[in-house]
Design a protein around this nucleic acid. Structure first.
Length: 589
RNA sequence: GCGGCUGUAGCUCAGUUGGAUAGAGCGUCUGGCUACGAACCAGAAGGCCGGGAGUUCGAAUCUCUCCAGCCGCACCA
């Protein structure tokens, strides 16, 4: 069955075609045909502004043109009438039972109701979270996880082939600092005493990994405190530079326990932390098709291939001992170093290699979900893709703004390095997965998020997630009640009597149901899960209003079953919508 | 200085490619359970859509400009 909106668009385009060559110019741009839902039912159910848009080209007053169009609109059973209103709107009034047919559709399609093919089976890779594996996830990463997962679900519902990926930054200096931090805690566990570096990772989880290291390695990696700290530059508290100090410490560590020993420490830490992250996200309902290692790019030569490709096209040059990519030739602000004067390739080099690899894997769209502080980097990677002969426009980035956590009225601060932060796991344990997933996607990604712990925890009428879940549970409760009153639901009878659903409350619910497929398309196209959140609230509201206004379980079997088929459709749509958000739809609460 | 995001009711925020009288939640005030779950519902009050200019039949939405806040502008990742 064609959706009402599409049918109306079809009617309009027929009418316009009939006027082409007489009142209207030959061809009417199909984009001019816009059908909207009316805000006020006094203006009918749907409206079009097409006459106002075309009035100038036709050389007619909008209302005159509108009248001419109305006269050419073919009659159809689902439309009662259409008329000219206001400045030149064409308002459509639906036949009484036309909108009730959506109930039949929901029952027929079930979980598939709302899914569509607007994505045209294109391949998209969604990269999100991609947190440095140097510590547990905190509440900011939680937003990325919830948002990325919901956007991915929405895209899949719109017929995209979606691949979810986590990029592991397992190469580079941060990992070295992590390994050094673990090793130092290990030495402490061995009984050595010293001052921990200012720039080391100080979180408690480092000690846990160190204890694990001690169990695996015994004292084989133990070195005396004197060997370790002799002849090092001063750390920050001694008036030195914390970066210089920790780098020197890393060099010393490597020479004392060997490249091999250092790598064992690093790998143990990496797998422990990554395992923790994967488990945390998994419990949160956030899963990935692939965890992609940055280190593997260097190991398998992908970075060299990318650099070679740039060089082939003459987009690199040497300056000050470093190798530069001529990014300014591709719209970036400045040229970028890809190989440093010390011979080490930059993060940017592996990044363009990674994005080249995404293209080579056949993805049409590369969607990166990034922290808003990374926005400058988008132009750079696009420039890199263009320079390598891939369209930079295939890279699509969504920037997620920061999360501020409030406990009561007070701000909770966070910092990974100091180890004082609220982890995602702690948040989930305190608030619950459903409320977390919901709160994280309640706002648009470019909106700062104030996450109020007390509100999210409250099992009260203040909490919007329960409002929606309650609608689902209420329907389940109605069915139980139905049984206890000795009835059973007769679906066929209900669907045969949909025309009985004609009260204002029923009409409001039907309209809400009918909107769902449009919302899925819109939320997917805009990558905006919060659109779905707001919609679900409105759907739940229309249901709760209906529930309070009318009895569903009435004596008249035809009416009773028609109403039950309606509320069951509501339950189905709530379940579908919450499913895309990763929120459960419970039968009891 | 350059770039990105943000500014809408007391608070937190929606508002689709420009459409009819700018919406919701919370908070405040007033009502509603002998009812299928009151985790609910109904009603009221509350607005120069940051300021100004422009584009046009029509602007919260597009353009310019100014103001305010957050974030970037590495041979870090």
């Amino acid at each position: 069955m064609v959706a009402l909106k599409q049918e109306l668009e079809q009617l309009l385009s027929v009418a316009l075609a009939r006027l082409a060559g007489t009142l209207l110019p030959d061809a009417v741009d199909p984009r001019a045909i816009v059908i909207e839902r009316t805000r006020d039912s006094a203006n009918g159910d749907f409206a079009s502004n097409v006459a106002m848009r075309l009035a100038k080209a036709a050389g007619l007053a909008p209302r005159t043109l509108a009248q001419a169009i109305v006269e050419q609109i073919p009659a159809t059973p689902r439309v009662l009438r259409c008329e000219v209103a206001g400045a030149g709107f064409i308002n459509f009034y639906l036949a009484g039972d036309a909108q009730a047919q959506v109930v039949r559709q929901v029952h027929e399609l079930g979980d598939a109701f709302g899914r569509n093919a607007s994505g045209a089976d294109r391949k998209i890779i969604v990269e999100f979270v991609s947190s440095n594996p140097t510590g547990p996830l905190h509440v900011g990463h939680g937003r990325h996880g919830a948002f990325g997962a919901s956007v991915s679900n929405l895209l899949a519902a719109n017929g995209w082939q979606v691949h979810r990926e986590y990029y592991i930054n397992d190469a580079g200096r941060q990992m070295d600092i992590l390994a050094a931090s673990i090793w130092l805690r290990y030495l402490e566990a061995c009984g050595e005493r010293f001052t921990f570096p200012a720039n080391g990772y100080k979180g408690e989880y480092i000690r846990d990994i160190a204890a694990d290291l001690l169990q695996h390695e015994g004292d084989s990696l133990q070195r005396a405190e004197g060997e370790l700290f002799g002849n090092l530059p001063p750390d920050e508290p001694e008036g030195g530079d914390k970066d210089t100090y920790i780098d020197a410490l890393i060099v010393r560590a490597r020479s004392l326990i060997g490249e091999d020993g250092f790598r064992r420490v690093l790998d143990l830490g990496l797998s422990a932390i990554l395992g923790d992250i994967e488990q945390d996200l998994g419990e949160f309902g956030v899963t990935f098709d692939r965890w992609y290692s940055e280190r593997s790019l260097a190991d398998n030569g992908a970075i060299d291939r990318a650099l070679h490709r740039l060089a082939q096209h003459d987009h690199v040059y040497e300056k000050d001992g470093a190798l530069w990519f001529r990014a300014t030739a591709f719209g970036d602000d400045k040229d970028r170093v890809v190989v440093r004067d010390n011979g080490i390739k930059t993060y940017f080099a592996s990044d363009i290699a990674y994005h080249l690899d995404k293209r080579e894997r056949g993805f049409d769209v590369l969607l990166d979900i990034l922290g808003s502080d990374h926005h400058g980097y988008v132009a750079r990677v696009r420039a890199g893709l263009d320079a390598m002969g891939e369209p930079g426009s295939s890279l699509d980035a969504l920037l997620v703004q920061f999360v501020t956590l409030y406990r009561g009225g007070e701000k909770a601060q966070m910092s990974t390095r100091s180890g004082e932060f609220i982890t995602l796991r702690e948040l989930r344990n305190e608030v619950g997965n459903d409320a977390c997933r919901f709160f994280y996607v309640m706002r648009g990604n470019d909106q700062h998020l104030d996450f109020d712990l007390e509100l999210a925890k409250s099992r009260s009428n203040d909490n919007p997630v329960y409002y929606i879940q309650y609608a689902h549970a209420r329907v389940a409760s109605v069915l139980k009640q139905l049984e206890s009153k000795g009835h059973t639901y007769d679906g066929a009878l209900g669907l045969a009597n949909l025309a009985l659903l004609n009260s204002v409350h029923e009409s409001a619910v039907l309209t809400a149901l009918d909107r769902y497929p449009e919302i899925i398309v819109l939320a997917g196209a805009n990558r905006a899960p919060h659109t779905l959140v707001h919609y679900l609230r409105e759907l739940a509201n229309s249901f709760h209003t209906y529930y309070n206004a009318e009895q569903f379980i009435v004596d008249d079997a035809a009416l009773r079953n028609a109403r039950l088929s309606l509320v069951l459709a509501v339950q189905q749509v709530v379940r579908n919508g919450l499913g895309l958000l990763g929120v459960s739809a419970p039968d009891t609460m």
